[in-house]
Design a binder for these strands. Structure first.
Length: 410
RNA sequence: GGAGGAGUGCCCGAGUGGCCAAAGGGAGCAGACUGUAAAUCUGCCGGCGCUUGCCUACGUAGGUUCGAAUCCUACCUCCUCCA
């Protein structure tokens, strides 16, 4: 049984919190009023590209907001863009992608579902493929669709206009992407579409098309874009600056500790589950110098890690971090490497070979470099000789840099 | 159909006959410092051997040359303009 939160003001407060933009606010109020009046949940849509089923913290910003919608009694629909995925959201580099196999698609969808349900309530979330309506469109219907938007309008989109001015290529099929995404909203009769601020154009296209098809236009709700570990570019898998929600606790905690200090508050706001008042307090504390940035960041790291791995694991990750990085001691669990004949010569282990074989470095050249830089230790001693041959001692620890260890077994 | 332009290392981007494994930036890695895997500074940053050496690499395939990322030919891919 659906239970919509009856208090309009409360709903508004929750919904608006943390958003970058809501377009238009007035219609949101109307929709909410209606929904309360008829006890009818709003359909909140989010589109995802099914090619990379690896959810990272950047995605969770929007997902958290969706969870709030669920808690308010609304309905969340996740659109897996198997069809839009063939185009890829235009960036200027993509060309048409090969359609994914059924099998691959289902596998990705499954992974997605699993990951998304770490945040959303599985029972209240509907998953759909947009091929289920897009694939059925006849060419005539596609023509009709394209007739509903002018080129001038399309060129308003940031990256299109930029590319157009720069004389860089824009393929016709790229124009189809916003139209397809917008048509998803038509097909679903979405009330609200969520996205990052970079989705503004696409979300507004949804509104436009819904009007064209005689529907109530959806509300576009945009969340801020979360910067990745480098602190500059948006978090994305292809840039390698992401924190995946499936990553092991130690990894997650450590990565969170490596975000630039300036980004901490934003992370608190967008990916932690600290309440707004507390975040405000932390912010003040930092500004006044009462709080130590490191301690604050540790709080953040622990909190976020706990969301995905539970308190206990988060606690452990923190212990691990303190021990390994603050006290420069050894972690409690070190992968074991069994000494094999291929890393040996004359009964001695050849260091570069060992490092490569154990996966601590990617080539012998790199192994030599690390040694020259003083980054390699055996049993706590810095190694100077890049070609070191040594008789392996059972359980001795080989370390490269701060983060990579193995325990030797003879 | 015609004219012109582009293709460089993980990414961006300089380089138009030797001093180029290729400037600079970003990312990454190591070290120092610290308050953390922040910031800052220094170094490294194709592979193999390691003191000078070899191999692979500047869209692809050939060619000119003592010597080519750089010149020529063909091809591929892409872009712009004109029609």
């Amino acid at each position: 049984m659906v239970e919509i939160e009856r208090d309009l003001e409360k709903q508004l407060l929750w919904i608006k919190h943390g958003t970058a933009e809501v377009i238009p606010k007035s219609e949101l109020v109307e929709k909410l009023k209606n929904s309360i009046k008829h006890n009818k949940p709003l359909k909140v849509k989010l589109g995802l590209d099914p090619t990379a089923p690896d959810i990272h913290l950047g995605h969770t910003v929007v997902l958290q907001k969706l969870r709030q919608f669920q808690q308010l009694g609304h309905k969340v629909i996740i659109v897996l863009g198997d069809y839009t995925g063939r185009i890829g959201d235009p960036t200027g580099k993509s060309s048409t992608r090969k359609p994914m196999s059924e099998e691959e698609l289902l596998r990705n969808a499954h992974t997605y579902k699993q990951q998304i349900c770490k945040i959303l309530d599985e029972n209240k979330t509907e998953f759909v493929f947009n091929s289920s309506w897009l694939a059925k469109l006849t060419f005539e219907e596609v023509i009709n669709l394209t007739a509903k938007c002018t080129v001038a309008r399309m060129l308003e989109r940031d990256d299109f206009s930029k590319r157009f001015k720069e004389n860089s290529p824009i393929s016709i099929h790229e124009f189809l992407y916003p139209l397809m995404q917008g048509y998803d909203s038509v097909a679903l009769e979405a009330d609200i579409e969520m996205g990052g601020t970079d989705q503004k154009f696409n979300l507004l296209m949804g509104r436009h098309l819904q009007k064209e098809y005689g529907q109530q236009p959806q509300i576009a709700i945009m969340m801020p874009i979360l910067e990745g570990l480098d602190g500059k570019q948006k978090m994305s898998k292809s840039l390698g600056n992401y924190i995946g929600i499936d990553e092991p606790p130690n990894e997650m905690y450590g990565k969170l500790m490596s975000i630039p200090d300036e980004l901490m508050i934003k992370y608190f706001e967008l990916v932690s589950d600290f309440p707004p008042e507390e975040i405000a307090e932390i912010k003040r504390g930092l500004e006044e110098g009462k709080l130590h940035p490191r301690d604050v960041k540790m709080q953040l790291a622990k909190n976020v890690t706990a969301i995905y791995h539970g308190e206990e694991q988060a606690e452990k990750a923190e212990e691990h971090f303190k021990r390994v990085f603050q006290q420069q001691e050894l972690p409690d669990e070190i992968p074991i490497f069994r000494v094999t004949p291929e890393v040996m010569e004359d009964d001695k282990v050849v260091l570069p070979k060992l490092l490569v074989a154990a996966g601590l470095v990617s080539s012998t050249s790199e192994a030599r470099r690390r040694v020259k830089q003083g980054g390699v230790k055996i049993a706590g001693d810095v190694i100077i000789d890049a070609n070191l041959r040594f008789i392996p001692v059972n359980e001795s620890i080989v370390r490269v840099g701060k983060r990579r260890f193995i325990k030797l077994m003879v």
